[in-house]
């Protein structure tokens, strides 16, 4: 298993050598968004408005954290299932998004977008939310506060443990698993 340490923002050259199944420890700023935030991103794009953050070379984490206990920067925060965002992901990559973090398989349209725009789909282990919240150093809501857990947050993470799910060539960890 190859191991990489990466820091956001991610340029094309940072991700081009990654292959499905590689271990990645990700640090830097990342942004949370899941179902409802994606719906709002699309509405903003349709209206010709800016997204709540500049997505160029950035990474979106599909997560709706649990509330933070006193003394914690964020509550437990594991990935949610990614396919529900498939409909929205290609357009975000087209606008410059470099990567997404989630869990589970992605559709063909996402794979094509990753190849075309040199993006990466990272996967985190699902259901290890208490472990992952330890890797978050700061968290603040930057948009859609009314969505509660689904609001868009800017997180500063340190060595978030991930695997490469789908790389820039379209290799897929889930397909590899079934082939072997």
């Amino acid at each position: 298993m190859r191991v990489f340490k990466l820091k956001t923002p991610l340029k094309e050259e940072d991700v081009i050598d990654l292959r499905a199944g590689d271990r990645v420890y990700l640090s830097g700023k990342i942004y949370t968004a899941r179902d409802m935030a994606h719906r709002r991103f699309m509405e903003a794009i349709e209206r010709g408005e800016d997204l709540p953050f500049d997505i160029k070379d950035q990474v979106i984490f599909y997560v709706g954290p649990a509330p933070a206990k006193p003394g914690y920067v964020i509550g437990p925060c594991g990935p949610t299932t990614s396919y529900r965002m498939d409909k929205y992901t290609p357009i975000l990559h087209k606008l410059g998004l470099r990567g997404t973090i989630g869990k589970g398989m992605r559709g063909k349209e996402v794979k094509e977008a990753l190849k075309k725009y040199k993006g990466v789909y990272f996967v985190a282990t699902g259901g290890v939310a208490a472990l992952l919240c330890k890797k978050v150093k700061s968290s603040r809501i930057i948009a859609y506060e009314d969505l509660g857990t689904e609001a868009v947050r800017e997180l500063e993470v340190e060595d978030l443990p991930l695997f490469v799910g789908i790389d820039t060539r379209g290799n897929d960890i889930y397909e590899k698993a079934l082939e072997s």
Binding site: R23, G64, G127, V128, C133
Partner: peptide
């Protein structure tokens, strides 16, 4: 590696009284 994370996670949750999963 995945199972190690899962095992470490439930130990953290138990120790710190945190939900095992955000869901």
């Amino acid at each position: 590696q995945v199972l190690d994370e899962i095992i470490e996670n439930y130990k953290i949750a138990e120790r710190e009284k945190l939900p095992i999963c955000q869901d």
